[in-house]
């Protein structure tokens, strides 16, 4: 019994210091005005201001687009990789870019997308003229999706990899075509991977800020941008913390919606 407690102590310490304490601090901060008085005004302002509500909507909307795009690209990719001979190697190649610093990757895209970047060079070369690529919604979504894709592929790949191949044979054996097998067996059985990928992409995407600034040119203002602004520019830590609390709540909502629900049988559809 004693040894078990000893094992768990570092874990509890870690949770207390790096999870509970920061959240408690944020919650505490969110009840103070910019002048240092205890108040509910931050929450009142957040809920009544159309600016903040629009920002919230924007965050959710863009995070959703990024997640759905990442899913649409990642599922087929994970599926194809899983069919390949050296699948672990191919997976590694996809995971590799995540080891490069995010800021570096972002600057690389600035280089690619700028007026004198390679993409515009190419467009001019094929006679399409140069275009404003940087600082558009499209480039923001493109880069954000690119960065999030590995985090979507990994859990989906794992769930496909764990799928017992004899289940696919069983489905074929019972007369299902490839498509029917995919829809009735493969998709439901890889749902846990899709949900994990959804969480891993959607939640961080809610609070993206660096890419919105460097690639999106601050045209898209999300909650992440707002938090950065409040802490670093306006110094309104109370409001920043309030938005932080909102994001944490959003996180819990997403986790609740995508939780593992055990299929308790049910009727035949």
């Amino acid at each position: 019994m004693k040894s078990k407690a000893a094992y768990l102590t570092p874990y509890f310490l870690w949770i207390a210091l790096f999870v509970i304490a920061p959240m408690a601090l944020i919650l505490y901060q969110s009840f103070f005005s910019i002048t240092g008085h205890f108040t509910f005004a931050n929450y009142e302002e957040y809920l009544s201001s159309s600016v903040y509500l629009k920002m919230t909507f924007n965050s959710i909307w863009y995070a959703l687009i990024i997640t759905v795009l990442a899913l649409a690209i990642s599922y087929p990719t994970a599926y194809l990789i899983n069919q390949l001979k050296n699948k672990q190697l191919w997976l590694l190649l996809i995971i590799l870019p995540t080891w490069i610093n995010l800021l570096l990757k972002t600057y690389a895209f600035i280089g690619l997308f700028s007026q004198n970047g390679s993409v515009n060079d190419f467009l001019r070369f094929v006679g399409l003229g140069s275009h404003q690529i940087l600082f558009t919604d499209a480039s923001f979504i493109f880069v954000a999706t690119y960065i999030e894709i590995p985090f979507m592929i990994l859990p989906i790949f794992n769930s496909l990899d764990e799928l017992n191949p004899s289940l696919i044979n069983a489905s074929r054996d019972l007369g299902a075509s490839n498509w029917q097998t995919f829809r009735r067996v493969i998709v439901p059985l890889t749902m846990p991977g899709v949900k994990a990928g959804f969480q891993a992409v959607f939640i961080p995407s809610l609070s993206l800020f660096m890419i919105t600034r460097l690639i999106g040119g601050n045209r898209v203002i999300t909650l992440g941008t707002a938090i950065e602004e409040h802490f670093l520019v306006t110094q309104n830590w109370g409001m920043g913390s309030t938005i932080g609390i909102i994001l944490i709540l959003a996180m819990f909502v997403v986790m609740f919606l995508t939780r593992d629900r055990k299929n308790r049988g049910g009727q035949i559809r």
């Binding site: 017992n164 004899s166 289940l167 069983a170 019972l174 007369g175 299902a176 299929n263 035949i268």
Partner: peptide, 22 residues
Amino acid sequence: ANQRQVNTVFQDYALFPHLNVE
């Protein structure tokens, strides 16, 4: 395979875990 009039009872049963018996 899906057009053959044979069915298989697999070595590991291969029952679909996301579906109930019925």
